[in-house]
Design a binder for these strands. Structure first.
Length: 433
DNA sequence: TCTGGGGTCCTAGGACCC
DNA sequence: TCTGGGGTCCTAGGACCC
């Protein structure tokens, strides 16, 4: 059944939660079952929707007003990532009852390697997959789509084959029928660019790609695509990553604003806000960044970026802003319209230790870090952005918090100068740190 | 999908070093 | 100083994923 091969055949599952966020909402609140439910209220656009909503014409990215127009009975909810994470973890736990080799690929997807588990469970691979599916659906109250095949790339094609509530096993002997009906751009890892490139050579389906000679593939394509080619032919190139990443390699925050602006103060305040948010995330993971990249995105979708090595690793906005402030004028051009700013924190290090330097810069920064830990605590109690930097002031006023935080914003000046605010919030003064 | 936000990985080419 | 060959490290940027 699994194709004769000189190596052991593999049985890899790809498991995908159907309309995951919306399904979590329904599982959380059974009264919603059978109704059109959409998540993404906080952003003003649909991010996930139940099949009831899809059937009425709701699509990803659709504006709320448009959604209500095509689907008057819709229930629109804000995203609740804590709940989605909870369901996600329960999904992984259930799958791990059947095999320890589980890759937590994303919040709503995982891979599982069932190879060699038939004897343990006394049933065939497809049968094991059916059991996993039943457990998931019974215990989580939502449906899943599953693909079973010899490699991750093929398993992905399987899970997409029948979309809600499907189970598709693609054995190597009838892989052709599936690949012939799969356009190259639907292959996992092949994006619009590579798809267009392959089309140039008359390759339109996954089957046409898989049947190209290896020498041609190696001469014309780069490593990731050579691996995809092997996987389409049933050879495992990507093993499951069962360890999972313990920490981040980078943390970034970007935000688009409308309308686009050519005002340097405004653009910089947007960047400043992103930096504050990225720093909050760094501290949440107890990390410090040793390098940063900030960028401005023009109305034409061009990126003007600047990479900076920090004098010492930090998770304090003050340190980061000092670095970006110096370089900002170099990449900001008058008379260019910008639509977004962003910051990426890189070369992240465990924030626990913190080495000393001769000039005491680190010691000072440690003091600031303690201030920001208090800020994080306040934010946790009274809501994000109750406290923020003066450089972000304009961004706050123009941003999503215009109405609800206006009062707090009114009297808030630069955290490092605004003693009134600092006293009001019970923060230590700089001299007291 | 005329374009939101958060990520990872790969590669070509330059700098620098025997 | 020039020449040849080869290695490593770093960086910018592309491509793709959910």
């Amino acid at each position: 059944m699994w194709g004769i091969s000189h190596s052991f055949p593999r049985a890899i599952l790809h498991i995908d939660g159907d309309s995951f966020f919306a399904s979590c909402e329904v599982a959380k609140n059974p009264a919603l079952r059978g109704k059109p439910v959409v998540t993404g209220k906080e952003r003003g656009i649909a991010s996930s929707m139940t099949y009831e909503a899809k059937r009425m014409g709701v699509k990803r990215g659709m504006m709320l007003s448009e959604i209500r127009r095509v689907c008057p009975s819709v229930v629109i909810l804000p995203s609740d990532y804590e709940t989605y994470s909870l369901f996600s973890n329960r999904m992984y736990e259930i799958v791990r009852r059947y095999t320890p080799a589980v890759e937590e690929y994303s919040i709503d997807e995982c891979f599982a390697d069932l190879s060699g588990m038939r004897r343990v469970h006394r049933m065939g691979y497809r049968n094991i997959a059916e059991h996993i599916k039943q457990d998931l659906e019974r215990e989580l109250g939502m449906t899943f789509s599953i693909g079973l095949s010899a490699t991750k790339v093929l398993a992905k094609i399987g899970s997409k084959w029948k979309k809600p509530d499907g189970l598709t096993a693609i054995s190597l002997k009838d892989v052709r029928a599936y690949l012939e009906k799969t356009p190259v751009e639907k292959i996992w890892g092949v994006g619009p660019n590579t798809a267009a490139y392959l089309n140039t050579y008359g390759i339109r389906t996954a089957w046409e790609f898989a049947k190209r000679e290896e020498v041609w593939v190696k001469a014309m394509l780069s490593k990731p695509f050579i691996e995809i080619w092997h996987e389409l032919n049933g050879e495992v190139m990507n093993e499951l990553d069962v360890e999972g990443r313990q920490t981040h390699l980078s943390i970034s925050k970007t935000k688009t604003f409308t309308p686009p602006s050519r005002n340097p103060e405004f653009v910089y305040s947007q960047l400043s806000k992103n930096i504050e948010n990225a720093c909050i995330k760094l501290r949440r993971w107890d990390l410090v960044a040793s390098e940063i990249v900030f960028f401005l995105k023009t109305q034409e979708f061009k990126y003007h970026a600047c990479e900076i090595k920090l004098p010492f690793p930090s998770s304090v906005p003050h340190d980061i802003l000092k670095a970006t402030g110096e370089h900002f004028p170099k990449i900001f051009h008058k008379n260019i319209l910008y639509r977004a700013t962003g910051i990426t924190m890189m070369k992240l290090i465990d924030g626990g230790g913190g080495q000393l330097d001769l000039f005491g810069s680190v010691a000072k920064s440690e003091g600031l870090k303690r201030i920001f830990e208090s800020v994080d605590e306040i934010s946790g109690r009274y809501g994000k952005h109750t406290v923020f930097l003066g450089t972000s002031f304009q961004a706050m006023r123009n941003g999503a918090h215009a109405g609800d935080r206006g009062h707090a914003a009114e009297r808030t000046q630069d955290l490092f100068k605004g003693e009134t605010t600092r006293r009001r919030l019970g923060l230590p003064m700089l001299g007291e740190v």
